[in-house]
């Protein structure tokens, strides 16, 4: 155990942790939304994210960009970003909806036991990741350098890059927008009503099926954005990228209080930062082990997560 690594690199570790945490937080929203409404771990959400990482690569490929391309100028860069985001959002949203229609809705109609949902989700997850795995020959795919990471400002020995700023800002903006949507709009009120009590909500005229579809769609959209950020930050994607990050995202959702939107943000950022600190102290191979130990400790002392589980409450 060597604490000097952590002390010396405290600033950089924090900043990269925040950027990683922002991606995890966006990803975690999908778990939290679905769990808040259906009390169900959407195991296939990791593959929704995975499809997003490939969708934006595909869109950039249409422009003739690959990992060896030169970094574009500012004008085209904005266009590429927009196209990539839209492609990822569309594919991830569509994938999330498809999973809901194929794997969950038939079971819900028969009021199947909760475990059955988990198993179809596992089936869907396995199917998607394996098809992607076979299609890419299980190799990793490089990402074209759309945005070159450039230092913007430096505090002490901590350098903050434009990419990190972009990721954190985008995550915060999306979180704010989603929070406003769930807490402020008419559709969002429907979501909260179903989360609180599905049967009463249905009696009050809320279209339950539509709300559930909406929740999956929202989770998919957020995962799509997270996927583009992931591509830009990590620089490569692979058929099992969703699975690995999905475990982090789910941990983050539980950490913040699953079913709670703000909890997902807090949990994601906290997890990203703490993982980096742990990597600084114990070495990077212990990154995930540290986050799980943290999770167990938190659940033992505060089983509902940091902010509590409250999508259904009046104030989420």
């Amino acid at each position: 155990m060597d604490f000097s690594g952590l002390i010396d690199n405290f600033g950089p570790l924090t900043v990269t942790g925040l950027a990683q945490g922002a991606i995890i937080a966006l990803f975690a929203l999908g778990y939290t939304l679905v769990y808040g409404v259906l009390r169900l771990i959407n195991f296939a959400h990791s593959e929704v994210f995975l499809l997003g990482t490939y969708a934006c690569l595909f869109a950039w490929g249409l422009f003739g960009l690959d990992q060896n391309s030169a970094a574009p100028a500012v004008g085209p860069m904005l266009l590429y970003m927009l196209v990539g985001l839209i492609a990822a959002i569309i594919v991830s949203g569509a994938a999330a909806l498809t999973v809901e229609f194929v794997a969950y809705r038939p079971l819900r109609r028969r009021n199947a036991p909760p475990l059955a949902f988990l198993i179809t989700a596992i089936g869907a997850s396995l199917f998607i990741s394996e098809v992607v795995g076979v299609a890419t020959h299980r190799n990793q795919t490089g990402v074209p350098p759309i945005i070159q990471a450039r230092p913007v400002f430096t505090i002490g020995d901590t350098t903050v890059t434009n990419l990190q700023i972009l990721i954190i800002l985008l995550a915060l903006v999306m979180m704010f927008a989603l929070d406003r949507f769930i807490n402020g709009s008419r559709l969002g009120r429907g979501v909260r009503a179903v989360a609180q009590n599905p049967d009463s909500a249905a009696l009050m005229g809320v279209n339950k099926s539509r709300v559930i579809a909406l929740v999956f769609l929202l989770g998919g959209l957020m995962a799509g954005i997270a996927a583009v950020m992931y591509d830009l930050k990590i620089g490569v994607t692979r058929y099992d990228a969703g699975f690995l990050l999905g475990i982090d995202a789910f941990t983050a959702a539980v950490l913040g209080g699953i079913g709670n939107l703000r909890g997902a943000l807090l949990g994601g950022l906290l997890l990203g930062v703490l993982q980096n600190y742990a990597a600084g102290v114990f070495g990077s191979q212990w990154l995930h082990a540290a986050s799980f130990v943290l999770l167990v400790v938190i659940l033992l002392f505060r089983p509902t997560g940091l902010l509590g589980e409250s999508l259904g409450r009046a104030r989420a």
């Binding site: 475990i247 212990w286 082990a289 033992l300 089983p303």
Partner: peptide, 28 residues
């Protein structure tokens, strides 16, 4: 011992973590 006090879904994620930790320990 520590985890069985947790509710169902949390138990699921903690056990998932346990397997992952075993694998990480074995790898590292």
């Amino acid at each position: 011992w520590p985890t069985l006090r947790l509710r169902g879904d949390y138990l699921a994620i903690v056990t998932l973590g346990f397997a992952e930790i075993i694998r990480i320990v074995a790898t590292s």
